[in-house]
Amino acid sequence: MSFSNHPLWLVGFRPFFTLACLSGLSLPVLWALIFSGILAPPATPFSPAQWHAHEMFFGFGWAVLGGFLLTATRNWVKIRGYHGQALMLLVSAWLLERAGMWCAGILPPLVFRLFSNLFLAMIVLMLLWTLIRHHQDDSFPDNTFFLIVLPLFLVAKNLLLSEDHFQVGAAMTLGLFRVVFLVMLERTVTQFMKNAVQADILRSAPLDRAIKLLALLLVFVGLLPTQIAPWLALLLALLLSGRFVFWKPQLAMRRLDIGIMYLGYLAIVAQLLLQFIEQLVTPGWLGSLSMHVFTFGAMGLIIPAMLIRIANGHTGRKVIFDRLDKAVLWIMIAGFVIRIILPQFDPAGYLRWIGLAAACWFTCFAVLSWRYVPYLLQPRVDGKPDA
Protein backbone atom coordinates (compact mmCIF):
# COMPACT_ATOMS: atom_id res chain seq x y z
CA MET A 1 0.00 0.00 0.00
CA SER A 2 1.42 3.39 -1.00
CA PHE A 3 1.68 6.13 1.62
CA SER A 4 -1.00 8.23 -0.11
CA ASN A 5 -3.43 5.29 0.25
CA HIS A 6 -2.93 5.05 4.01
CA PRO A 7 -6.26 5.39 5.92
CA LEU A 8 -5.07 8.80 7.21
CA TRP A 9 -5.39 10.24 3.70
CA LEU A 10 -8.73 8.75 2.68
CA VAL A 11 -10.98 11.58 3.89
CA GLY A 12 -10.43 15.10 5.21
CA PHE A 13 -11.41 14.67 8.86
CA ARG A 14 -8.68 12.08 9.45
CA PRO A 15 -5.52 14.21 9.06
CA PHE A 16 -7.08 17.49 10.14
CA PHE A 17 -8.74 16.20 13.29
CA THR A 18 -5.37 14.69 14.16
CA LEU A 19 -3.80 18.13 13.74
CA ALA A 20 -6.68 19.70 15.70
CA CYS A 21 -6.04 17.39 18.66
CA LEU A 22 -2.30 18.06 18.63
CA SER A 23 -2.69 21.83 18.28
CA GLY A 24 -5.50 21.89 20.84
CA LEU A 25 -3.26 20.35 23.48
CA SER A 26 -0.16 22.41 22.65
CA LEU A 27 -1.15 25.94 21.58
CA PRO A 28 -2.93 27.04 24.81
CA VAL A 29 -0.04 25.70 26.89
CA LEU A 30 2.48 27.56 24.71
CA TRP A 31 0.49 30.76 25.18
CA ALA A 32 0.26 30.31 28.96
CA LEU A 33 4.05 29.89 29.10
CA ILE A 34 4.60 32.94 26.87
CA PHE A 35 2.06 35.08 28.75
CA SER A 36 3.63 34.22 32.11
CA GLY A 37 7.13 35.03 30.83
CA ILE A 38 8.45 31.49 31.22
CA LEU A 39 8.88 31.07 27.46
CA ALA A 40 10.14 33.72 25.06
CA PRO A 41 7.57 34.72 22.43
CA PRO A 42 8.16 33.69 18.82
CA ALA A 43 10.37 35.90 16.68
CA THR A 44 7.65 37.79 14.80
CA PRO A 45 7.06 41.32 13.53
CA PHE A 46 3.66 41.28 15.22
CA SER A 47 2.70 41.08 18.90
CA PRO A 48 2.48 37.85 20.92
CA ALA A 49 -1.27 38.49 21.28
CA GLN A 50 -1.62 38.55 17.49
CA TRP A 51 0.34 35.31 17.23
CA HIS A 52 -1.89 33.69 19.87
CA ALA A 53 -5.13 34.85 18.25
CA HIS A 54 -3.98 33.78 14.81
CA GLU A 55 -2.84 30.33 15.91
CA MET A 56 -6.00 29.56 17.87
CA PHE A 57 -8.28 30.67 15.02
CA PHE A 58 -6.29 29.79 11.90
CA GLY A 59 -4.16 26.99 13.32
CA PHE A 60 -6.43 25.05 15.69
CA GLY A 61 -9.73 26.50 14.46
CA TRP A 62 -9.05 25.89 10.80
CA ALA A 63 -7.73 22.38 11.44
CA VAL A 64 -11.18 21.62 12.86
CA LEU A 65 -13.09 23.62 10.27
CA GLY A 66 -11.02 22.25 7.40
CA GLY A 67 -11.53 18.66 8.51
CA PHE A 68 -15.25 19.23 9.00
CA LEU A 69 -15.85 20.95 5.66
CA LEU A 70 -13.68 18.57 3.63
CA THR A 71 -15.77 15.73 5.03
CA ALA A 72 -19.17 17.41 5.01
CA THR A 73 -19.00 18.84 1.49
CA ARG A 74 -18.64 15.37 -0.01
CA ASN A 75 -21.87 14.37 1.77
CA TRP A 76 -23.64 17.58 0.78
CA VAL A 77 -22.97 17.18 -2.94
CA LYS A 78 -22.69 13.36 -3.04
CA ILE A 79 -19.17 13.02 -4.44
CA ARG A 80 -15.93 11.65 -3.11
CA GLY A 81 -14.06 14.35 -1.22
CA TYR A 82 -10.42 15.31 -1.57
CA HIS A 83 -8.08 12.49 -0.59
CA GLY A 84 -4.59 11.10 -1.09
CA GLN A 85 -2.04 13.58 -2.41
CA ALA A 86 -4.49 16.50 -2.22
CA LEU A 87 -4.80 16.02 1.55
CA MET A 88 -1.06 15.50 1.92
CA LEU A 89 -0.48 18.82 0.17
CA LEU A 90 -2.96 20.61 2.44
CA VAL A 91 -1.42 19.15 5.59
CA SER A 92 2.06 20.15 4.40
CA ALA A 93 0.82 23.70 3.83
CA TRP A 94 -0.78 23.77 7.32
CA LEU A 95 2.49 22.64 8.91
CA LEU A 96 4.46 25.14 6.83
CA GLU A 97 2.19 27.90 8.12
CA ARG A 98 2.82 26.90 11.74
CA ALA A 99 6.58 27.04 11.15
CA GLY A 100 6.25 30.34 9.31
CA MET A 101 4.21 31.89 12.12
CA TRP A 102 6.84 30.93 14.70
CA CYS A 103 9.77 32.17 12.60
CA ALA A 104 8.08 35.15 10.91
CA GLY A 105 10.70 37.58 12.19
CA ILE A 106 13.56 35.88 10.39
CA LEU A 107 11.77 35.19 7.11
CA PRO A 108 11.73 37.61 4.17
CA PRO A 109 8.29 39.32 4.13
CA LEU A 110 7.35 37.78 0.79
CA VAL A 111 8.27 34.27 1.97
CA PHE A 112 6.32 34.78 5.18
CA ARG A 113 3.22 35.90 3.25
CA LEU A 114 3.49 32.81 1.08
CA PHE A 115 3.88 30.50 4.08
CA SER A 116 1.05 32.13 6.02
CA ASN A 117 -1.53 32.21 3.23
CA LEU A 118 -0.81 29.05 1.23
CA PHE A 119 -2.88 26.62 3.30
CA LEU A 120 -5.95 28.81 3.66
CA ALA A 121 -5.92 29.89 0.02
CA MET A 122 -5.63 26.30 -1.14
CA ILE A 123 -8.35 24.84 1.04
CA VAL A 124 -10.76 27.72 0.40
CA LEU A 125 -10.33 27.33 -3.37
CA MET A 126 -10.82 23.58 -3.13
CA LEU A 127 -13.98 23.91 -1.05
CA LEU A 128 -15.39 26.63 -3.28
CA TRP A 129 -14.67 24.56 -6.38
CA THR A 130 -16.57 21.61 -4.89
CA LEU A 131 -19.59 23.66 -3.84
CA ILE A 132 -19.81 25.67 -7.07
CA ARG A 133 -19.13 22.84 -9.48
CA HIS A 134 -21.69 20.53 -7.87
CA HIS A 135 -24.21 23.14 -6.67
CA GLN A 136 -27.09 21.43 -8.49
CA ASP A 137 -26.61 18.35 -6.30
CA ASP A 138 -26.21 20.33 -3.07
CA SER A 139 -28.74 19.23 -0.45
CA PHE A 140 -28.38 22.48 1.55
CA PRO A 141 -29.40 25.72 -0.22
CA ASP A 142 -27.92 27.82 2.59
CA ASN A 143 -24.42 26.64 1.64
CA THR A 144 -24.43 29.97 -0.19
CA PHE A 145 -23.23 31.39 3.12
CA PHE A 146 -20.06 29.30 2.81
CA LEU A 147 -19.46 30.73 -0.66
CA ILE A 148 -19.42 34.17 0.98
CA VAL A 149 -17.61 33.57 4.26
CA LEU A 150 -14.83 31.25 3.08
CA PRO A 151 -13.02 33.86 0.92
CA LEU A 152 -13.50 36.44 3.68
CA PHE A 153 -11.37 34.31 6.01
CA LEU A 154 -8.37 35.27 3.86
CA VAL A 155 -9.14 38.96 4.35
CA ALA A 156 -9.66 38.54 8.09
CA LYS A 157 -6.45 36.55 8.45
CA ASN A 158 -4.28 39.27 6.96
CA LEU A 159 -6.04 42.02 8.89
CA LEU A 160 -5.44 40.04 12.08
CA LEU A 161 -1.70 40.12 11.45
CA SER A 162 -1.67 43.81 10.57
CA GLU A 163 -0.38 46.14 13.28
CA ASP A 164 -2.94 48.81 12.43
CA HIS A 165 -5.97 46.58 11.86
CA PHE A 166 -5.61 43.81 14.44
CA GLN A 167 -8.88 44.60 16.25
CA VAL A 168 -10.83 44.76 12.98
CA GLY A 169 -9.28 41.47 11.87
CA ALA A 170 -9.99 39.78 15.21
CA ALA A 171 -13.63 40.91 15.17
CA MET A 172 -14.01 39.80 11.57
CA THR A 173 -12.45 36.40 12.28
CA LEU A 174 -14.74 35.84 15.26
CA GLY A 175 -17.72 36.91 13.16
CA LEU A 176 -16.85 34.45 10.40
CA PHE A 177 -16.50 31.57 12.83
CA ARG A 178 -19.81 32.64 14.39
CA VAL A 179 -21.56 32.32 11.02
CA VAL A 180 -20.07 28.86 10.49
CA PHE A 181 -21.07 27.70 13.97
CA LEU A 182 -24.64 28.97 13.56
CA VAL A 183 -25.04 27.19 10.22
CA MET A 184 -23.59 24.01 11.72
CA LEU A 185 -25.71 24.15 14.87
CA GLU A 186 -28.94 24.51 12.88
CA ARG A 187 -28.22 21.30 11.02
CA THR A 188 -26.64 19.16 13.71
CA VAL A 189 -28.88 20.04 16.65
CA THR A 190 -31.99 19.39 14.55
CA GLN A 191 -30.66 15.94 13.67
CA PHE A 192 -29.36 15.11 17.16
CA MET A 193 -32.63 16.03 18.87
CA LYS A 194 -34.67 14.02 16.39
CA ASN A 195 -32.46 10.93 16.61
CA ALA A 196 -31.61 10.99 20.32
CA VAL A 197 -34.80 12.15 22.04
CA GLN A 198 -37.34 11.96 19.18
CA ALA A 199 -38.01 15.67 19.43
CA ASP A 200 -38.57 18.18 16.64
CA ILE A 201 -37.22 21.66 17.32
CA LEU A 202 -38.36 24.94 15.82
CA ARG A 203 -37.03 25.48 12.31
CA SER A 204 -38.54 28.58 10.74
CA ALA A 205 -36.98 29.46 7.38
CA PRO A 206 -37.53 33.24 7.78
CA LEU A 207 -36.12 33.24 11.32
CA ASP A 208 -33.15 31.03 10.43
CA ARG A 209 -32.39 33.20 7.40
CA ALA A 210 -32.63 36.41 9.42
CA ILE A 211 -30.23 35.01 12.02
CA LYS A 212 -27.64 34.02 9.43
CA LEU A 213 -27.94 37.28 7.51
CA LEU A 214 -27.50 39.29 10.71
CA ALA A 215 -24.52 37.16 11.66
CA LEU A 216 -23.05 37.76 8.21
CA LEU A 217 -23.55 41.52 8.57
CA LEU A 218 -21.80 41.44 11.96
CA VAL A 219 -18.71 40.00 10.29
CA PHE A 220 -18.07 43.63 9.33
CA VAL A 221 -18.74 44.98 12.83
CA GLY A 222 -15.38 46.76 12.88
CA LEU A 223 -16.40 48.76 9.84
CA LEU A 224 -20.01 49.52 10.83
CA PRO A 225 -21.06 52.87 12.37
CA THR A 226 -20.71 52.80 16.14
CA GLN A 227 -24.33 53.90 16.47
CA ILE A 228 -25.56 50.77 14.67
CA ALA A 229 -23.13 47.93 15.46
CA PRO A 230 -24.05 47.30 19.13
CA TRP A 231 -27.77 47.23 18.35
CA LEU A 232 -27.27 44.67 15.60
CA ALA A 233 -25.38 42.48 18.09
CA LEU A 234 -28.26 42.86 20.56
CA LEU A 235 -30.85 42.02 17.91
CA LEU A 236 -28.99 38.85 16.92
CA ALA A 237 -28.65 37.85 20.58
CA LEU A 238 -32.40 38.33 21.09
CA LEU A 239 -33.31 36.31 17.98
CA LEU A 240 -30.99 33.49 19.05
CA SER A 241 -32.39 33.58 22.60
CA GLY A 242 -35.97 33.46 21.33
CA ARG A 243 -35.23 30.48 19.10
CA PHE A 244 -33.36 28.75 21.92
CA VAL A 245 -36.53 28.61 24.01
CA PHE A 246 -38.23 26.60 21.26
CA TRP A 247 -35.28 24.24 20.79
CA LYS A 248 -36.43 22.28 23.86
CA PRO A 249 -33.40 22.84 26.09
CA GLN A 250 -35.18 21.04 28.94
CA LEU A 251 -34.78 17.82 26.95
CA ALA A 252 -31.32 18.53 25.55
CA MET A 253 -29.78 19.32 28.93
CA ARG A 254 -30.59 15.83 30.17
CA ARG A 255 -27.81 14.51 27.94
CA LEU A 256 -24.34 15.97 28.21
CA ASP A 257 -23.39 15.07 24.62
CA ILE A 258 -26.28 17.20 23.29
CA GLY A 259 -26.53 19.68 26.15
CA ILE A 260 -22.96 20.85 25.55
CA MET A 261 -24.03 22.00 22.07
CA TYR A 262 -26.70 24.11 23.75
CA LEU A 263 -24.13 25.54 26.15
CA GLY A 264 -22.00 26.50 23.15
CA TYR A 265 -25.07 28.14 21.59
CA LEU A 266 -25.63 30.14 24.79
CA ALA A 267 -21.96 31.18 24.75
CA ILE A 268 -22.56 32.76 21.33
CA VAL A 269 -25.51 34.66 22.81
CA ALA A 270 -23.41 35.75 25.80
CA GLN A 271 -20.60 36.95 23.53
CA LEU A 272 -23.06 39.06 21.53
CA LEU A 273 -24.49 40.60 24.71
CA LEU A 274 -21.00 41.42 25.97
CA GLN A 275 -20.19 42.91 22.57
CA PHE A 276 -23.34 45.05 22.81
CA ILE A 277 -22.47 46.29 26.31
CA GLU A 278 -18.85 47.01 25.48
CA GLN A 279 -19.58 48.91 22.25
CA LEU A 280 -22.37 50.86 23.92
CA VAL A 281 -20.26 51.92 26.90
CA THR A 282 -16.54 52.10 26.05
CA PRO A 283 -14.80 50.02 23.36
CA GLY A 284 -12.06 47.91 24.97
CA TRP A 285 -13.63 48.20 28.43
CA LEU A 286 -13.98 44.42 28.79
CA GLY A 287 -10.57 43.59 27.37
CA SER A 288 -10.54 40.16 25.76
CA LEU A 289 -13.50 38.82 27.75
CA SER A 290 -15.94 38.86 24.84
CA MET A 291 -13.45 37.09 22.56
CA HIS A 292 -12.70 34.39 25.12
CA VAL A 293 -16.37 33.76 25.87
CA PHE A 294 -16.61 32.74 22.22
CA THR A 295 -13.34 30.80 21.98
CA PHE A 296 -13.80 28.94 25.27
CA GLY A 297 -17.60 28.78 25.24
CA ALA A 298 -18.49 28.09 21.60
CA MET A 299 -15.28 26.59 20.19
CA GLY A 300 -14.03 24.99 23.41
CA LEU A 301 -17.30 23.27 24.27
CA ILE A 302 -18.69 22.33 20.86
CA ILE A 303 -15.51 21.16 19.10
CA PRO A 304 -14.53 18.26 21.43
CA ALA A 305 -18.07 16.84 21.23
CA MET A 306 -18.00 17.20 17.45
CA LEU A 307 -14.61 15.46 17.21
CA ILE A 308 -15.88 12.55 19.30
CA ARG A 309 -19.01 12.14 17.16
CA ILE A 310 -17.24 12.28 13.82
CA ALA A 311 -14.23 10.21 14.87
CA ASN A 312 -16.59 7.45 15.99
CA GLY A 313 -19.33 7.67 13.38
CA HIS A 314 -17.13 8.12 10.34
CA THR A 315 -14.85 5.23 11.30
CA GLY A 316 -17.76 2.79 11.54
CA ARG A 317 -18.23 2.86 15.31
CA LYS A 318 -21.35 3.59 17.35
CA VAL A 319 -21.65 7.21 18.44
CA ILE A 320 -21.85 6.64 22.17
CA PHE A 321 -20.29 9.00 24.71
CA ASP A 322 -18.81 6.82 27.46
CA ARG A 323 -17.55 7.98 30.84
CA LEU A 324 -14.17 9.13 29.51
CA ASP A 325 -15.79 11.08 26.68
CA LYS A 326 -18.11 12.79 29.15
CA ALA A 327 -15.19 13.49 31.46
CA VAL A 328 -13.46 15.30 28.58
CA LEU A 329 -16.53 17.51 28.10
CA TRP A 330 -16.70 18.28 31.83
CA ILE A 331 -13.02 19.24 31.75
CA MET A 332 -13.77 21.80 29.03
CA ILE A 333 -16.75 23.13 30.97
CA ALA A 334 -14.38 23.53 33.94
CA GLY A 335 -11.91 25.30 31.63
CA PHE A 336 -14.61 27.79 30.64
CA VAL A 337 -15.44 28.52 34.29
CA ILE A 338 -11.76 28.85 35.21
CA ARG A 339 -10.90 31.17 32.31
CA ILE A 340 -14.05 33.29 32.08
CA ILE A 341 -15.78 33.37 35.45
CA LEU A 342 -13.16 32.96 38.18
CA PRO A 343 -10.93 35.87 37.04
CA GLN A 344 -13.91 38.20 37.52
CA PHE A 345 -13.88 37.33 41.24
CA ASP A 346 -10.11 37.03 41.62
CA PRO A 347 -8.38 39.29 39.07
CA ALA A 348 -5.17 39.13 41.10
CA GLY A 349 -4.92 35.43 40.24
CA TYR A 350 -5.25 36.04 36.49
CA LEU A 351 -2.01 34.25 35.61
CA ARG A 352 -3.03 31.23 37.67
CA TRP A 353 -6.43 31.02 35.97
CA ILE A 354 -4.83 31.22 32.51
CA GLY A 355 -2.46 28.39 33.43
CA LEU A 356 -5.25 26.21 34.80
CA ALA A 357 -7.46 26.87 31.78
CA ALA A 358 -4.58 25.91 29.47
CA ALA A 359 -4.15 22.75 31.53
CA CYS A 360 -7.82 21.91 30.89
CA TRP A 361 -7.30 22.26 27.14
CA PHE A 362 -4.16 20.14 27.33
CA THR A 363 -5.90 17.40 29.31
CA CYS A 364 -8.95 17.39 27.06
CA PHE A 365 -7.08 17.16 23.78
CA ALA A 366 -4.41 14.84 25.16
CA VAL A 367 -7.16 12.37 26.06
CA LEU A 368 -8.84 12.88 22.67
CA SER A 369 -5.49 12.32 20.95
CA TRP A 370 -4.85 9.14 22.93
CA ARG A 371 -8.30 7.75 22.24
CA TYR A 372 -9.15 8.89 18.73
CA VAL A 373 -5.98 9.50 16.74
CA PRO A 374 -5.49 5.69 16.52
CA TYR A 375 -9.03 5.49 15.04
CA LEU A 376 -8.05 8.08 12.45
CA LEU A 377 -4.99 6.08 11.46
CA GLN A 378 -6.88 2.82 10.97
CA PRO A 379 -9.41 1.62 8.36
CA ARG A 380 -13.10 1.73 9.22
CA VAL A 381 -14.01 -1.11 11.58
CA ASP A 382 -17.17 -1.93 9.64
CA GLY A 383 -15.24 -2.63 6.46
CA LYS A 384 -17.03 0.07 4.47
CA PRO A 385 -14.90 2.28 2.21
CA ASP A 386 -14.14 5.87 3.21
CA ALA A 387 -14.61 6.94 -0.41
Rank of each mutant, 00 (worst) to 15 (best):
L89Y: 14
Q50R: 10
Y262V: 02
F166R: 08
V155Y: 07
D257A: 04
L216N: 03
Q279C: 00
K318G: 06
V245S: 10
I34K: 06
L65M: 04
Q344G: 02
M56D: 00
V221C: 15
G264D: 10
W370S: 05
S241W: 14
Q227C: 10
A40C: 07
P249F: 08
F153T: 12
L152Y: 09
S290W: 09
D382Y: 09
Q50G: 14
L65S: 11
R98K: 10
D200K: 15
P206M: 12
L356S: 06
L256K: 02
A237T: 07
A53T: 05
F68L: 15
D386F: 15
Q227D: 08
G84E: 04
T190G: 11
I106E: 09
I303L: 04
M332H: 08
H292G: 04
Q227K: 10
L10Q: 12
V77H: 03
F140R: 15
A20M: 04
G297F: 03
L301I: 08
A99P: 02
V219S: 12
G67I: 08
L185K: 09
I148K: 06
R113D: 07
L286P: 07
P48K: 06
M299N: 05
L239D: 04
R178E: 13
T190Y: 03
G37P: 12
L216Q: 05
H6A: 15
A233L: 13
L110M: 13
L127K: 10
I338M: 03
L95K: 07
G66C: 10
L90C: 10
M299H: 04
M126A: 07
C21S: 01
T363P: 00
L152M: 10
F140L: 14
R74K: 14
V269E: 05
L160C: 13
L224T: 07
F220T: 12
A237R: 04
R80L: 07
F112I: 08
V245A: 13
P379Q: 07
G81M: 15
C103L: 15
Q136V: 06
L235S: 09
F153H: 13
L114K: 03
